[in-house]
Design a protein around this nucleic acid. Sequence first.
DNA 1: TGGTTTCTACCCAGTATTGGGTATGACTAC
DNA 2: GTAGTCATACCCAATACTGGGTAGAAACCA
Lengths: 208, 208
Amino acid sequence: MTGQTAISVLLVDDHPLVTEGIGACLETWDNITIAGTASNGRESIEAACQIKPDVILMDINLPDMTGLQATRHIRARQPHSKIIILSMHDNREYVISAIEEGACGYLLKDVSSSEVATAIETVYRGGNYFSTDVAKALTGPKQHSVLTKRETGVLALLAKGSTNKMIGRELGISERTVETHRKNIKRKLGISTTAGLTRYAMENGLTN
Amino acid sequence: MTGQTAISVLLVDDHPLVTEGIGACLETWDNITIAGTASNGRESIEAACQIKPDVILMDINLPDMTGLQATRHIRARQPHSKIIILSMHDNREYVISAIEEGACGYLLKDVSSSEVATAIETVYRGGNYFSTDVAKALTGPKQHSVLTKRETGVLALLAKGSTNKMIGRELGISERTVETHRKNIKRKLGISTTAGLTRYAMENGLTN
DNA sequence: TGGTTTCTACCCAGTATTGGGTATGACTAC
DNA sequence: GTAGTCATACCCAATACTGGGTAGAAACCA
C-alpha cells in the first residue's frame, strides 16, 4: 500500500472459489483492495450501493439474473462505480449489450489475473478495457446477433426445457406470441427442431 | 511449511484465472504446494507423468476431452496420484462415472477454498471426499437409473434433432418403439421435454 | 414526419409428442 | 427354470408444436 488510496473492488460471482481465488490474486497488487463480494445479482446491487466500490468485476452468469441486468441496475443507482464484465464461458455475443448497459470493460474467460489488474486500473482511470479476443469480435466480420432481445430470451427459456405455455407465463406474454417468436428464431437460424435450438443455445452460452 | 513435505498438487482447468486463483488460495496452506498447472486434457496427462503430483484437482470441462477421460488416462499411467474432480458447473450426474474412473473426490462449484484444502488432505491420506450436495445425490432416494444401450442411442439421435420417425428409420425400428424408448428415457431421467433431453445429452457427451 | 423493425397476437390445418396402457420374444442371472 | 430386464411394437386420447398466413401498436431511426 503506497501513500495513495487503493482502488476498491467488488467481486460478483456465484462460485465462492472464483471470488476467493480472484480476490487472493488481486490482493497481491498494492493498489487494489477487495471491498466485498456478492454471489448473485440482488446481492451485487445491494453491495454496490452500500460499499460504493470504485470498480465492480461482474460475472455474466448469475443465478437470479444476468450480469448485464445487474449492471443496468447498478449503473442507475451507483453511476460512480465502473463495471467490468467477466465472461467465464466463451459467450462473447454479449459484448455489444454490455457496452450499451454501461460496462467499461469485458474480459473473456482466458485472461490472467495480471490482465484483470490492468483492466481494473484502466477503467478506474476512466478508460475502457476489452480483452484481445473481444476487441477482435467487435471489429470482426459481422457477428450473427440476428436474434432480437426478446427472441434471445425466448430461446434461453426454450433451451431450459420450458414449453411455449410456460415461456408465455414466465415472460407475461401470450402462448401465441411465443409461438411466433419461436417460428422467427427457427427461420433466422435455419434450425427446424427443438433439439437443434437447444444445441445452438448451449453452444452460444445462452444457458447457464 | 513444517518439517514434513507438503502435498504437491497439480491444477487442471482451462481458465487461467481459476488455476491462478485456486493456486493463490491453496498456497496459503502450509501443507499444500502447487506443483504445476495444465489447461487441457493432454497437458494434464503429460504433467501428471512428469511431475507425479500427490493430488490432481481436475476440472470436468476441458477443451479437448472431459476431466473424466483425462482421469482414466492418468489413472492408467500414474496410479499414485489421487484425483479430485472439480465441477464448476452444476453437473452432478458425472459422480458415478467419476468414481468408476478412479477419482477419489468430487467437488461441486459452490465449495470454498478451505473445503478444497480439506478435500486435498483427505484424499492424500487415502480417503475419499465428496462435497455435501454430491453425497446427497449419491445417497438420495433418486435412483441413478442408467440408460440402456438402445436408449442411449435413441437419446443421442434425439439430441441431434431427429424426430421419432427419423430415428426409427435410422435404427431400423418402428416409430412406436422409438416412442416407447423416449418415454422410458424421460421417466428414468425425470426430464419431460425434448430440450431437457438435449441438454442432458450434451452435458453427458452423447453428442459427438 | 415517415419508414423499418420489434413485439405483440391470432387463424388454420396438419404433424409430432405425450403419458397412460398392454404385450411378446430374447436374454441374463441366480 | 423362473424372475427380471431389454428391446420390440401397438392402442388411444390429449396436448404441443409446425409452418403457412395476417395485423396492429410501439419503438427506433433517419
